[in-house]
Design a protein around this nucleic acid. Structure first.
Lengths: 249, 249
DNA sequence: CGTTATTTGTGCGTATGTATT
DNA sequence: AAATACATACGCACAAATAAC
């Protein structure tokens, strides 16, 4: 059988993507049965194998679970945005299905604490505040602080120039091509906090609600700090997932 | 084509398991290239598709990465992903300077959610609740759920037999010597929550305070769940720190 | 610089097994 | 017992990336 020529995205990825967004949008609520392989194959005009390939990806993402003889069921709890994170690459690819909306554009600011954590001599940093959205629902507010000489690399970037701008960028993704030394590591600290009034307003929750706080310090291979980001996540829409593996000896 | 009759573990799982163990044992270090699909198919006397199926699992686990035209390469390096409190070893050695105090001893319980996450058919689990103390200050409450056949390994253990018992043990450390398959991986989910009244009483904080919630599902190398632990941490006394590294190629 | 061999990626057909309804 | 639905396995054809010549 011939194969479609020069197709950009594979058929199974199209199917997986549509089902994934449908589940996240709540078309299939928690535990609801999805169409069968045969039905989906018929609908998308692909073979059953291609549908299976798509389902296999969704299973390993934890989006659905399957029971032989019964069917395939949505596994998302409360529409929570889940993502497996375990490397800097994962952080950089955060933009594939989330949007960034600028709240406060990139500007000069005095911040002793941030400057100290960036190993700067002076107290001046440049910072930008943005929300991150998934399916138009905000789930995170992030403040990014940069040393002045790093911020200079972003002067022309429209993604961080004015409030309200929406893009699918990440700061680290914008920076990376311009850096001589690539970003090679990040130190993360994860804790819980109560939402401040302004935070609650931006995220659409109540003051005092429990939120997840993640601080990240990105560094080059030579341990030079490049970016400090402080993010507050809504726990209803986000949880941080990691897979740990033991080396057998 | 005929299929082998009544095979217990699927052929692709056998292949995946052997490759996984070989990588974790260091047979394929660093970015060493693995045998090609054709070679492995020949070696295991299976079709190329079956080898591909195995590789697909290993890719989604992050064990290997593949490059079209070049080959398949081992992706696990020593301490590549997570340091500090980030590896399974660190979780097991959590007891070095903390004490465990039993709140509710190990007992049989019905918990549909926990049973589901442990991939059990029935709804019965065995669970134990304990506080973790550092310098006599409680900073964490943990509920551990075990499948019945695993809990049976702890029947004689005094560390979990009665409320009030204080020891420097960890559940995983108590279990590990008795398991046929060693614990090789864990899936973690980290989020924030508000302290319930009982939680607040045990931890010495106020109801509604923001606490860090960490769920861990420990599994053997064959993906069999062994233990589910749900912990609530006081953010003042604990933050989860991870160092992420980028794999430069 | 093109050609060729190697290697992984995609897509589909077929057959059969197993679990559920 | 039969129908339904997912699971496994193999085969084939062709595409695309890479490397060697």
């Amino acid at each position: 059988m011939p194969v479609r020529a020069a197709e950009q995205t594979a058929a199974y990825q199209v199917v997986a993507r549509e089902l994934r967004t449908a589940i996240l949008r709540g078309t299939y609520r928690d535990g609801v049965r999805l169409p069968t392989e045969a039905e989906l194959a018929d609908h998308y005009r692909v073979s059953r194998q291609t549908v299976r390939r798509a389902f296999h990806d969704l299973v390993s993402e934890g989006m659905v679970y399957r029971v032989p003889g019964r069917g395939t069921f949505a596994a998302v709890r409360d529409g929570q945005y889940l993502r497996q994170i375990g490397s800097v690459e994962d952080l950089m690819s955060l933009s594939v299905d989330t949007m960034m909306e600028v709240v406060t554009p990139l500007q000069r600011r005095v911040d002793v604490d941030a400057a100290g954590r960036l190993h700067l001599g002076a107290d001046v940093v440049h910072s930008v505040v943005f929300r991150r959205l998934h399916d138009d629902v905000p789930f995170c507010i992030t403040t990014v602080c940069l040393p002045p000489h790093i911020a200079a690399l972003l002067v022309g970037a429209p993604e961080v120039a004015s409030a309200g701008t929406v893009s699918d960028a990440t700061i680290i993704g914008l920076l990376d091509p311009h850096l001589t030394d690539p970003i090679a590591q990040a130190e993360q600290s994860i804790t819980a906090a109560a939402a401040s009034p302004s935070l609650a307003a931006s995220l659409g929750c109540n003051t005092g609600d429990a939120v997840l706080r993640i601080d990240r310090l990105y560094m080059t291979i030579t341990d030079v700090p490049v970016e400090l980001s402080i993010s507050y996540f809504l726990p209803e829409h986000y949880s941080y997932r990691v897979r740990l593996r033991r080396t057998l000896r």
